[in-house]
């Protein structure tokens, strides 16, 4: 005889779901307040904020900002929602991809230099700090997506709205990265207190991460999707160098100034 779920058991089920969600928020809150890492480090235990949690957060929250970013042409009223869906899916995929790729490419040198500086025994903690900073960055970025949407809506009537959209997103990514670096420094502070060599390590990580990350985001373009060009995962000219482009632009500006 099949048992009908009683109302109390349904409530119980809903309550458990709610508890799980609350625990999720708790994790996010801990990341932002740097509590879990701090607690683990100060009690000298393995200070890992689990890699699984981070991957889960990046996979779950990353697409939210990506989708918001990618709906530009729809919000600006230049395409219908159905036309814009592929771009939103692409951008949603690309944000986690960008994070994973940048970290993976930058990790080998981080590992070797950590070892060389004699910090290998702390490597687990360093790695935990770096990984949780990624989760932190995604959380911060996600909190910014309503702002991005609002900015899209309020600038869509302007003539130069597409370049402006790029600037807005660059600003949001910049803000999230800078805030995440602050988080990272916080995560690192017990390590730095333990051994000042960690200060150099965190600096060099930030440098390499930014250097690789900027180029990776340039390669993975378009994130926003120019309304005047057909939607695609990669640009035709996507294999270009961001830094060379900036230098060339700067040199064009200077030459234009003097001619």
């Amino acid at each position: 005889m099949s048992k009908e779920p009683t109302i109390p058991s349904r409530i119980d089920f809903m309550l458990q779901g709610w508890k799980k969600m609350a625990r999720g928020f708790d994790t996010v809150d801990h990341i932002l307040r740097r509590q879990s890492v701090k607690r683990n480090l100060s009690s000298n235990r393995d200070g890992r904020v689990s890699l699984r949690t981070t991957v889960f957060i990046v996979m779950l929250l990353g697409p939210i900002y990506g989708i918001a970013m990618g709906c530009y042409a729809w919000v600006a009223g230049e395409r219908t929602l159905v036309e814009q869906i592929p771009q939103m899916v692409y951008s949603g995929t690309k944000v986690p991809l960008l994070i994973f790729f940048t970290v993976l490419i930058s990790l080998p040198s981080f590992f070797v230099i950590n070892t060389l500086l004699g910090l290998r025994d702390d490597f687990r903690e360093s790695l935990a700090a770096i990984i949780s900073a990624q989760a932190g960055m995604i959380v911060i970025l996600t909190s910014l997506f309503p702002l991005t949407l609002f900015a899209y809506v309020s600038t869509s009537h302007l003539e130069f709205n597409y370049p402006l959209a790029i600037l807005i997103n660059a600003g949001m990514f910049g803000l999230a990265s800078v805030s995440a670096q602050v988080l990272l420094r916080g995560y690192y502070s017990p390590l730095i207190a333990k051994d000042t060599r960690h200060r150099w390590m965190v600096r060099s990580w930030i440098f390499v991460y930014a250097f690789v990350g900027i180029q990776a985001s340039y390669v993975l373009r378009p994130f926003i999707g120019n309304p005047n060009t057909p939607t695609s995962f990669f640009r035709k000219d996507s294999f270009e160098n961001a830094y060379v482009r900036v230098l060339q632009l700067a040199s064009e500006v200077i030459q234009g100034f003097f001619s």
Partner: peptide, 8 residues
């Protein structure tokens, strides 16, 4: 990675 993505 840079070699793959940089024609310069």
């Amino acid at each position: 990675f840079f070699s793959l993505s940089t024609p310069n």
